[in-house]
Design a protein around this nucleic acid. Structure first.
Lengths: 354, 354
DNA sequence: CCCGGCGCTGACAACGTTGTCCAGGGGCTA
DNA sequence: TAGCCCCTGGACAACGTTGTCAGCGCCGGG
């Protein structure tokens, strides 16, 4: 289309809007071969300084930028990894996402991410879209419980690491926090401060971490020889209304709980609100799973089981890139420890029994 | 390589690890032409139900998944947009990022994002990497002040919308919050409650929003006929140490400020901590720019200038896709309003003068 | 002076998909 | 029964890049 004969005076090659110059255009303008341009663009050796200069000039003049789609097609590797999580807006996932990004960056890879909104179908849709893009690897915080759909992809070489929750019905690497241990510690802590009737408000029971935390709760109670009433356990969505209802019911029962263990971030925040509205005369002890900003500035400060979400992401991404670098071996399951941070709310004693 | 003759009994085609089946393989297995497979995969009309079934079977049997790199190369559109922000881990950007993602999803596009860490060079590096990937559009929260490097890309058809801060040295769409107006409101609010010596602790002066907020501060002060001491204004990085030092200096001066206006989220949080450590006898009024979770549960609740970061992201993404759908016209600058939410900390009176 | 080798360059195929175009067959109409 | 059109299917080129390989000078040694 454009006249590329060397003699022609075409200082400003008129290009259609949306059409970008290619290596061919650069080559024509610089009066060199296609491959030479490729060599310059990729910093390969074997190009005379003078030739390189000519090519560079043509690149700048035309505003050429390599088309990575073509490059990827040719090379087979995309230098990008996918991250599928539940909700980017959740403060728990921000640092995790950022940590994965940093590791990716250190390996020269880009990060493509998406939110599953805790919907298994959407998770699958996203994951497969990423596979179609031929991401080199995947970090997944799973929403569903059946990941057999991933088997062909993994067999085809897509490295995959699950985070926060394990994969369902397939064998895959996973990096988890010690939900069970953390929860047992939390409840044991409340028991040590004299509580006997302890409520647990958690996430949907289908979510692995929620189930593990419930298990930790039961373990601590039974280790202390304490019974657990059905009414003391409430699992469900973490929207404020549900949590508010559950908490109120436990606190206003005939035999009210004297302490609450909140199964995650969002539950804790809602419980804090509920407690703030109640008479301060009868304070209720509270421990939350997950740390959150300003937890120490509330009065009382909120005692939490902290898990380092950035560390979780970093560990997962590291493992992913080790796999990509060829590390073999069976799928591994890494469990990161949690840490109880006492701040006051978890150390409140139960009210004196009448 | 693999024997694809129809008669051969190859139920499990042995493929090299990392080699994926292509449409050619599917076509051979189904005994149809290449293009027919393409038609089935893309749901194009003109395929007999029987043929379609055969193709589908071959696809499942081989575990075929379309290679989007090749597709993109051929079609020219990537159905993906890039988002460059400062730090994914910052709670201000989580909802923004999520909102952009939702809009992208509604348009069938994927989101590739990266953090600039407030480093102009890294911003440029990221943006250009995204351009090389041929993203259809870009949403940028700029770190630098010179975006001329983007001109060739935009000329080549990459739609670009700046958010939170305008572009530098080029003309481009931008979606901003009303930093100036919000800040003026905040400071006027403090003045209305009797304050005369008001401190401002903000972000680096090079950041557009920081400069605008400072301007709002000055406007409110001068509209009230109040002088501004140099010692009352401190701009700089938002790390806790710097902010702590600045706040302490203003509060412990010979003529201490009686109220503080914090220029953003992170500054506010640090200031809250500083104030919490001081004697409660002489409370200091505080208004922060940006709302944050639990601001209402602190005592006193923290009065803030709220900007809806999700709305910011949604608006920007909407504008981006309108541009991608062909909406022309000059670059637009949209300014979203802010809202003062009184919660107590901004309504504290100054201590009685002796 | 000739030959081997090395440093530089370019022609060409291939990556996997989609758009264009054409062929063959079957059904419908005149 | 001839003619036409539509429906289905396939061959082929093109997208922009990179890997392979071959060619062309030029230099140094024999």
């Amino acid at each position: 289309m454009t006249d590329t004969a060397p003699g022609t005076a075409s200082r400003t090659p008129t290009r259609r809007y949306g059409t970008r110059p290619t290596m061919k255009d650069v080559a024509a303008r610089a009066g060199v071969g296609l491959k030479t341009v490729s060599r310059v663009v990729n910093g390969e050796p074997g190009v005379t300084p003078d030739t390189e200069r000519r090519v560079q000039e043509a690149i700048t003049a035309l505003g050429f930028r390599r088309n990575d789609s073509a490059r990827i097609l040719r090379k087979g590797r995309t230098a990008s990894i996918g991250l599928v999580l539940e909700d980017l807006a959740d403060p728990f996932y921000g640092p995790l996402s950022r940590a994965v990004e940093e590791v990716a960056r250190a390996h020269g890879a880009l990060l493509i991410n998406g939110s599953s909104a805790e919907d298994p179908e959407r998770e699958q849709e996203l994951v497969l879209a990423l596979c179609a893009r031929r991401v080199d690897g995947l970090v997944i915080i799973p929403a569903g419980h059946d990941h057999r759909y991933l088997a062909p992809e993994m067999a085809a070489g897509v490295a995959t690491v699950f985070v926060d929750r394990p994969a369902g019905r397939i064998d895959a690497d996973a990096v988890l926090a010690d939900s069970f241990g953390g929860s047992r510690d939390a409840v044991a802590h409340l028991i040590a401060h004299g509580h006997r009737r302890i409520g647990f408000i958690g996430d949907l029971p289908g979510i692995h971490t929620a189930a593990e935390r419930l298990r930790g709760y039961h373990a601590a109670m039974s280790e202390a020889g304490l019974p657990v009433h059905d009414a003391w356990v409430s699992l469900g969505p973490t929207d404020p209304e549900r949590v508010r209802t559950a908490a109120t019911a436990m606190l206003d029962a005939a035999e009210p709980v004297t302490a609450l263990f909140a199964g995650n971030n969002r539950v804790t925040v809602t419980v804090v609100r509920v407690l703030a509205e109640r008479p301060p005369a009868a304070p209720v002890a509270l421990i939350g799973f997950d740390d959150f900003e300003l937890a120490d500035l509330l009065s009382p400060g909120i005692t939490v089981i902290a898990q380092d979400s950035a560390q979780l992401g970093r560990t997962a991404a590291d493992l992913l890139f080790r796999r990509l670098d060829g590390a073999g071996g069976d799928p591994r399951r890494l469990v990161l420890p949690t840490r109880l941070i006492p701040r006051g709310s978890g150390e409140l004693p139960p009210p004196a029994t009448p």
